[in-house]
Design a protein around this nucleic acid. Structure first.
Lengths: 277, 277
DNA sequence: CAGGTTTTGTTATTTTTTAACATTAGTTTG
DNA sequence: CAAACTAATGTTAAAAAATAACAAAACCTG
């Protein structure tokens, strides 16, 4: 990124938007040059093109550039398939817990569109917003110290608050899952909350796509024995499934999802660029 | 919003982006009609215009179509001016509370850019995200029953959690403010939380633009005597200010914000629209 | 300094946007 | 029920912007 581009961004930060003409005059270069600068900035996601100019990037202020945002899109297909499958476990009027992981986020999205009448407890701010916005289900948020990287609440206050709730079903995602051992997380903050919730839930469900299988991480959260149902996708090795079924666990395998029909195949993350054949 | 517009949004939800031609063919109407539909959607913030078409709004999917979203833009200038002014009340390393109103949201936005090292307690999910994302300040969220209309947590669990925190400064917004009486809210849910927090804060600050003055609403929250500082904008009648100052309150009046220099005078919230003299 | 590369400027072409007006459909009202 | 009005849609022409392709300048680098 050249000097001029940096200055353009600075200006955007103050003004919000500029026309090409304005910038061309300001830097005493041709509009075409500005145009090229802006093209790059837009490609970087640092700014947004408008009709005759540029604008401050309007990506959702939160969840931009976060590492979470990237994770949200990994194995998206599988996660959606798992989410759809897990929906089948819900009965009307249940009280459920949804964990803050990315697989659970897909589950929450699916749920907020399809399910209704549920009471959803969560320590994830993202899931609170997602489910709450749907209006069809009520949400109870567990507060505490906010962890922006996970967009969820952690810490002692969260643990205290979690202890209030006794639920029908608790849905968890995980960093890693060894069928013969249990689930693993890479960081301590949220593992205690998970344990508290699981202990007070009638049914514990684990949502884990095939990439989670065989992965260990820093700390162990659940023994496999604590988990009643495992939902995974079709790419999980049969051997793993067998171990779980032999041990008496209910295992749901989500079928691969159907192809999308439309022609727009790209990822759609930035304006402009669109038409102009 | 007409039927076609709703369908456009649905399609965007799936595809991410469409061209005008595509939509015109799909609905068997002229491109001009689609264009007009999209213009409206873009104005609502429900979608984003691109060069030859539309795109899924980059705004957080939640908080669109909500009545809150609309309120966020009312008196935006004044609110920003007030927010900037209120920033001056902050000392380093304070622990503060920020209320869930829209004025407070502007304050949170300003704060997350300018301030650092603060501990911010809030029962607003929006503010949690906003401030948390900035990384410069830590956030403690107060959980409870989630109220999607306000994007904040309310109810007994929230009240219990609120009772844990003793703060240096608490910032509140309000529905209505009668200088000789106090502040008013239209709904009961959040008034108790405000009272609890205010009781435990060393300093209580009210952020209220001129439109709040002289308005009563369903229930009274604070007596004016409970409020230490009032921050308002320059359009508030001098008589009101006098009453407050005579009663010994600190009153800050935010000066009108300087004009933007470029030609882009609008609030920069949506792409396109920009140039084209 | 010659040769190459990168950056910038110019121009012509295509496409989009806009605005103004014409048309149609839909509603109200006498 | 039709006239009169209103709202929605379609059509067209003019203005502006985007793109692409090429020309010129600035900048290395050997």
């Amino acid at each position: 990124m050249n000097q001029r581009q940096k200055q353009i961004l600075e200006r955007l930060e103050q003004q919000g938007a500029c026309t090409y003409h304005e910038l061309a005059a300001l830097f005493k270069v041709s509009a075409m040059t500005i145009r090229r600068d802006v093209d790059e900035l837009a490609n970087l996601g640092a700014a947004t093109k408008t009709l005759g100019g540029v604008q401050k990037a309007l990506v959702p202020a939160f969840m931009c550039e976060t590492e979470l945002h990237a994770r949200l899109n990994e194995q998206k297909e599988e996660k959606q398939a798992i989410a759809a499958q897990a929906l089948g476990l819900l009965a009307g009027n249940s009280t459920i817990f949804i964990d803050g992981g990315t697989t659970c986020w897909e589950f929450a999205r699916a749920l907020s569109k399809k399910a209704q009448g549920l009471t959803v407890v969560t320590n994830s701010a993202l899931i609170t917003l997602e489910v709450g916005q749907g209006q069809a289900n009520s949400v109870i948020g567990i507060g505490g110290d906010y962890d922006p990287d996970r967009m969820s609440f952690v810490g002692p206050a969260t643990e205290d608050a979690a202890a209030r709730y006794f639920l029908d079903i608790a849905f968890f995602s995980t960093k890693g899952f060894m069928p013969a051992e249990g689930t693993f997380e890479s960081a301590a903050p949220n593992f205690r909350i998970k344990q508290i919730i699981a202990r007070q839930a009638k049914k514990v469900v684990l949502l884990a796509d095939h990439t989670k299988f065989g992965q260990r991480a820093l700390c162990k959260v659940f023994n496999t024995a604590q988990i009643h149902v495992i939902v995974t996708d079709s790419q999980t090795p049969a051997a793993s499934l067998a171990i779980l079924r032999d041990a008496g666990h209910e295992v749901l395998v989500a079928p691969p999802r159907r192809e999308v029909t439309g022609r727009h195949e790209n990822g759609q993350t930035r304006p402009m660029e669109a038409a102009l054949g």
